[in-house]
Structure formats: structure tokens, C-alpha cells
């Protein structure tokens, strides 16, 4: 009998422990993190999100769509079913996930879009991400300054990102706005779909057809090694400061861009502030959960570092860490 009572007491203690643990978990704020796909800069933002969430005591449920908009749609619905307190989303495609986001909105779940703006969405409460127009503009402004002394027609090669990616479109717009300040510039735009092999082929072909290209702008600096390869092959890889130097700029902040600028083959890169983007995303979600009002658009412009100051700013370049 004594033994039986002991067993019952043990079982009751276990049950109480389970309930307390469940209640404790139920109290923790759960953030649903819906990611388009994993690549270097995205992982940088995710690390900042996770670190800030941990600091604030939030639990994270992370789902990755691997570039599939339908999968992301289902994953967002699953986050709603799991009763998350807010959703942080980086969309593969706005139109496909809008219905799922509206479903979350109807359940009173705040939504923060990060890195990729969803300008036409009726569900998103706040956006935080790069100021891609300014980022492109900074690279364009520098390029225009370098080419200002050249007379006659100047050809500039622009390696575009994906044509349906808002960041790629905005970087291109910013770059073209700045370069348009020079009246004698012709921009030769080539699509790359963020693919370095396509960037390499496009650069090769562009220099075949237009051997006098004076500058290259890469929508992502991960394409700069491809540009270096082509310039080396055609004996045009001269360091910054040389008369025959081809001006090379890019946006992102990857190690590829950092190393190329350090070597003097690239002039400079615009570095995105991934840490601030991640931290702000969590802070916005936290404020929305607490019923506070927040800014709809929170853009974080990048910083342009050139060969003269990139080494001194290594600590600010996410790809160089």
C-alpha cells in the first residue's frame, strides 16, 4: 500500500511538472520565421534574428521554403495553426503567399516582412530591409565620379539581379539614377538571375561586343570574382589607380566583394547592414505583439566602402567576419 502511494505521488509530481512546463512554454512568445531560401546573406539576417529573439526570451519556429512559393504558403498556414504570436516573413513571391498572410492577419497575428518588401500586401504590418535604391545610387554615384573626366560615349556594364526581385530592381534603379547624371553614358544591362555562372558568361559576351566598357556594376558583389576572371582573361585586370583600370562596384557585403576590393581589383562595395535588419525585425514584432504602433517602412541604407577604407571597416562587413 505504501509502495502504491509512493508510485501515485511520483506520477502526480510528474504530471504537475509536465503541466508547469507546458504552461511555461505556452507563456513564451513564439515567433514564426518564414524564410524564402538559405544563402549566405540570408543566414546573416537569420542569425541576427535568432540572437535578438533569444535575448528577448522569444521562441522561434523556423521554416524554409527553398525557393518554392507554394511551400511557403503552406508553411505560413502551419505557423498560424501552431498559434505563433507574430510572423516574420521573407517572401519567395508576394502574390502566392498573400492569402496565407491574410489568414494570419484575420487571426490577429502581426506580420513583419524582412529583406524583401511586400508593397502591395494588405496583411503586412511592417517592413524592415535594405534601402536598395540608395545602395544602388551610392555605387552609381561613385562610378559617375570616376568616369566624369572621360569624353565621348562611355559604356557601362550592369549585371542585373533577378528581374522579379524587388531588391535587384531597386538597386538597378538607384544605380541608373546616379549614372544618368553623366550625359554620355550608355548602360548595357545583362540579366544574371543572381547566378554567378550567368554573370560570368554575360560579362564575357558583353566585353566581346563592347571591348571599351569602362565600368561594371554588379547587383550582388558575389559576381565580382566572375568579373575579375573575365578582365584577367582579356588582360584588363588593372588595379584601382591605374590608367587602364575598369571601375568595378557591387552591392551586398560578401567576402567575395571584400576580398576583391582589398586586392584593388574592385573599387568598392555597398555593404548591407544585416545585423540591424535582423534585430529591428524582432523589435518590430515585439512592439506589434504589445499593441504598440510602428512605422510601416523601416529601411536601412548600406555603407559604401572603397579600397581606401575597406580594411579599416572590416568589422562592419558581414561577409568578412
Amino acid at each position: 500500500m505504501k509502495h502504491l502511494l509512493y508510485r501515485v505521488r511520483q506520477l502526480l509530481s510528474l504530471a504537475v511538472l509536465c503541466c508547469v512546463s507546458a504552461l511555461a512554454n505556452a507563456d513564451a512568445i513564439k515567433l514564426g520565421l518564414s524564410v524564402d531560401q538559405l544563402f549566405e546573406s540570408r543566414v546573416g539576417v537569420l542569425n541576427a534574428i535568432k540572437s535578438e529573439a533569444q535575448k528577448q526570451g522569444f521562441e522561434i519556429i523556423e521554416v524554409v521554403a527553398d525557393g518554392d512559393p507554394q511551400a511557403q504558403n503552406s508553411q505560413i498556414q502551419s505557423l498560424v495553426t501552431q498559434k505563433v504570436d507574430a510572423i516574420l516573413v521573407c517572401a519567395v513571391d508576394q502574390n502566392t503567399i498573400e492569402r496565407a498572410l491574410l489568414g494570419a492577419k484575420r487571426k490577429g497575428i502581426p506580420i513583419v516582412a524582412f529583406d524583401r518588401a511586400l508593397p502591395d500586401s494588405r496583411a503586412v504590418d511592417a517592413f524592415v530591409g535594405p534601402d536598395s535604391i540608395t545602395d544602388g545610387y551610392l555605387a552609381g554615384q561613385y562610378t559617375a565620379q570616376q568616369l566624369a573626366q572621360i569624353d565621348g560615349n562611355i559604356q557601362v556594364l550592369e549585371l542585373l539581379g533577378a528581374l522579379n526581385d524587388q531588391n535587384g530592381i531597386d538597386r538597378s534603379k538607384g544605380f541608373n539614377d546616379a549614372i544618368a547624371e553623366l550625359p554620355n553614358v550608355e548602360v548595357i544591362a545583362m540579366p544574371t538571375d543572381w547566378d554567378s555562372a550567368r554573370a560570368l558568361a554575360a560579362t564575357q559576351n558583353a566585353f566581346q561586343a563592347n571591348p571599351d566598357i569602362k565600368a561594371v556594376f554588379a547587383a550582388t558583389d558575389t559576381h565580382i570574382p566572375s568579373v575579375e576572371t573575365v578582365l584577367y582573361d582579356i588582360a584588363k585586370l588593372h588595379p584601382v589607380g591605374s590608367d587602364q583600370h575598369v571601375v568595378v562596384t557591387g552591392v551586398n557585403g560578401s567576402n567575395d566583394g571584400y576580398q576583391a576590393t582589398l586586392r584593388g581589383n574592385a573599387d568598392g562595395i555597398v555593404v548591407m547592414d544585416l545585423h540591424t535588419t535582423g534585430v529591428t525585425a524582432v523589435q518590430l514584432a515585439s512592439a506589434l505583439i504589445n499593441g504598440e504602433s510602428v512605422e510601416l517602412n523601416n529601411v536601412i541604407p548600406g555603407n559604401f566602402y572603397t579600397t581606401s577604407n575597406i580594411e579599416a571597416n572590416k568589422a562592419n562587413i558581414w561577409g568578412a567576419q
Binding site: Q37, L38, F39, E40, G67, W194, D195, S196, A197, A199, L200, T222, P225, S226, E228, T229, D256
Partner: peptide, 12 residues
């Protein structure tokens, strides 16, 4: 070898 390094979008 052509692109000079691994990127996670390679082969997509």
C-alpha cells in the same frame, strides 16, 4: 573553377 567559389544558388 569558372566562378571562383561556391555559392548556395549554384546548380538551381
Amino acid at each position: 573553377a569558372r566562378v571562383g567559389g561556391l555559392q548556395s544558388g549554384i546548380g538551381i
